Amino acid sequence: MALLHRAELRPSKLELLAGWLPGRQWFAGEAGAPVSRVAAYRFDDPAGEVGVETLLVRAGDGSVLQVPLTYRGAPLAGADEHLVGVIEHSVLGRRWAYDACGDPVYPPLLAAAVLADAGQAEEYFEVDGKREARPASMTLTGSRTGRPVPTGPVSADPGDGGVTVVRVGDVELAVVRRPVPADVPAAGGLAGTWPGQDVPVLLAYAR
C-alpha cells in the first residue's frame, strides 16, 4: 500500500524530469519541451522508507518514456550518478529523487512483478483521518513463472538498445525505457496498458 500526501512539490516531478531526461542516452523527444505525464504505477518498499514510483511520460510530442524513480528522506550513499534531483515536499520535507535502476530497493520489487505477477501498490490519500483510494492510472500484468523471486545482491548498468539492465541475485532484468507493444518473453515480463493504449506494451522482462 502506498500512502500519498496532497502536497506541493518544488520543483514538481515533471519539472525535475524536464531537466534530467535530455541527458539520457535513451531520451526521445525535444530537449527543453515540457514533460507530460501519461500514466504511473508504484511498488511497495517492504520497509516503508522509500517511495518507489514509475512514471510514463512524454517530452513534447516524443515517444513514451519509462522512468522508475525512488524518493528518499536522505541521500543514498554511493549513488550520486543516479541522482535525478532534490524536491522540497510540503509535508515530508526534502526528498532525494533517484533513477530507481541505481537504487538497491528497486530490483527485488521489479523481479517480483516480472516473475511472480506481484502487481502494483494500491494508492491511498489520507483525508481528515480517513483513507481514500486513488484509482490506478494503468493496469500491470506480470508473468507467473514459478521461479523464486531472488533476494541476492543487486547491481545495474546502462544496457543498450533503449534498456537499462538491473540484476538481483542470479536474475537479469531489462527495464524498457521506450516501451512499445511487444510479446512477453518466455522467461517472464511485465506489460502495461492505460487509457488510450489498449494494446499492452512491454515494460520490463527477464533475460
Rank of each mutant, 00 (worst) to 15 (best):
R72M: 04
V86K: 14
G169Q: 08
D99G: 01
V67E: 07
L9C: 01
H89C: 05
A79D: 04
Y98A: 04
L55E: 05
T54P: 09
R167N: 08
M138Q: 14
G60F: 11
T151Y: 10
V127L: 15
G192V: 00
A182Q: 01
R131Q: 09
D80G: 08
R144A: 13
G196E: 11
S12V: 05
L173S: 15
E81N: 09
V127I: 14
Y106T: 08
G85M: 10
G146S: 07
P108V: 08
A79R: 00
P104F: 04
A97Q: 05
R10N: 13
G192W: 02
G161F: 12
L3K: 10
D183G: 13
V149S: 03
E30Y: 00
A33R: 05
E53I: 11
L140I: 11
D80P: 02
A47N: 10
R178K: 05
A40G: 12
A2T: 09
V84R: 10
S36F: 03
L21Q: 02
S63M: 15
V165N: 01
D170S: 12
A118V: 14
R131Y: 11
V154P: 11
T141D: 11
P75A: 05
R94C: 00
V176T: 05
R94W: 02
T145N: 04
E122D: 12
T145D: 04
A111T: 02
E49I: 08
Y98E: 10
V175A: 13
G196V: 14
P135G: 01
E53F: 04
F43D: 09
E81K: 10
A100V: 06
R207I: 01
D45M: 13
P34G: 01
A7S: 14
Q120K: 06
E122H: 08
R58T: 13
T139Q: 15
A2C: 06
E15S: 07
P68E: 06
T164V: 13
A74G: 10
P75W: 06
S36I: 10
A116S: 15
G192C: 05
A79M: 07
A47Y: 14
A191L: 13
Q197H: 14
A97C: 15
W194F: 09
A28W: 09
V57H: 15
T141L: 14
V163L: 03
D128S: 15
P107E: 06
L83H: 00
P108Y: 08
D44G: 04
P22R: 01
V176L: 10
M1G: 08
W20G: 01
L203R: 03
D117L: 12
A111L: 00
V175G: 03
L21T: 06
S90H: 05
G32L: 01
R6N: 12
